[in-house]
Simulated assay, not measured.
Amino acid sequence: MCGNNMSAPLPAIVPAARKATAAVIFLHGLGDTGHGWAEAFAGIRTPHVKYICPHASLSSPFTNPLCSYRFDIISLSPEAEEDESGIKRAAENIKALIDQEVKNGIPSHRIVLGGFSQGGALSLYTALTMHQKLAGVMALSCWLPLRSSFPQAAASSSNKDVHILQCHGEADPLVPLVFGCLTVEKLKSFVDPANVQFKTYPRMPHSSCPQEMMDIKQFIEKQLPPIN
């Protein structure tokens, strides 16, 4: 846990309606908190699944790196420099959160990791560089960070055949659809292409929509079925 006076708040959690046998960890975008996404998941919840929506630190990511998953976005152009150390540090923090759930009794292969925008970028990078096997990844309105380091960075990952749901709004002005298209092509070059779904939504800006939430619900139910 975070151990100084600048601790990030505890995650927003939607508890399972019965005994939790699976979990979704979902990372919000820049300048947001986990509360809105927790509310969205409460509307599509599956009874045996626990939903965990951590809050990134609102302070600088360098103030208290143990309690933040934020990293600096320098530019979104394809040739832009990226905050490599911040991304890697943030990924380690998410892996620690997954480890905590495993200690709580939910195995990693019963965990779906996901996120929106910056959180989606981080969920992709984390999943594709970790040694524990995940049930799936949901990458919404985002991009693959440090993409020039792949597929080498994924060489030792346990998630080369992970199921990925990637979603993007066709009217996104902040992370244009072309970033989603470039990302899905890159993913298919080192993840089993049959396991990568890419869904786009007409007129959807940098946000979510009811159809996307239904697609998310179906993906979660397929990757995290109930167990007896």
Rank of each mutant, 00 (worst) to 15 (best):
N64L: 01
F26D: 02
P225Q: 03
K188V: 01
M1W: 10
A12D: 14
A135H: 07
P151C: 10
P15M: 00
D192A: 00
F62C: 03
S60D: 15
F179T: 03
I106G: 05
D172P: 15
L128G: 01
A16Y: 12
L27E: 04
K222Q: 15
D99V: 00
A96W: 06
T63M: 15
M1F: 13
P193R: 01
V112K: 01
C167Y: 13
S57L: 12
A171V: 05
P225K: 03
P202K: 08
V24C: 13
G36S: 14
A8W: 14
S207G: 08
L187I: 02
M204D: 06
K217C: 13
H35W: 13
L113A: 01
V175T: 01
S60G: 11
M130Y: 12
T200W: 12
I98C: 04
W143T: 00
K103L: 11
K199A: 12
I25C: 00
Q218W: 15
N159M: 02
V175N: 07
A22S: 13
R89D: 07
P61C: 02
D172C: 11
Q152P: 09
N4P: 13
L165R: 08
S208P: 08
A121M: 09
V175R: 09
N228Q: 11
N93H: 15
A8M: 12
P54F: 06
P61W: 11
H109N: 15
M204R: 04
S85F: 15
C209W: 12
L76I: 06
I13G: 05
G120T: 01
P107V: 00
S157L: 05
V24M: 10
P78T: 00
A194I: 03
K188A: 02
W37P: 10
I111F: 11
R70W: 15
R89S: 14
C167E: 10
A38P: 05
A155K: 14
G3W: 13
S60A: 13
S60R: 06
I87E: 08
H163S: 14
M1N: 02
G180A: 06
K199H: 15
A139G: 00
F179W: 10
T46P: 14
G180P: 10
T129D: 08
E81V: 08
P11E: 03
K88P: 11
A194N: 05
R147E: 14
G136P: 05
W143M: 07
I44W: 11
T33V: 12
S77F: 13
C2W: 15
L177C: 04
H163M: 07
F62Q: 15
A56G: 11
G180W: 10
L66G: 09
E92L: 12
V162M: 13
P151M: 09
G105Q: 12
Q152V: 07
P225S: 00
S57E: 11
I220C: 00
A38R: 05
S141C: 08
C53H: 06
F190S: 01
F62T: 04
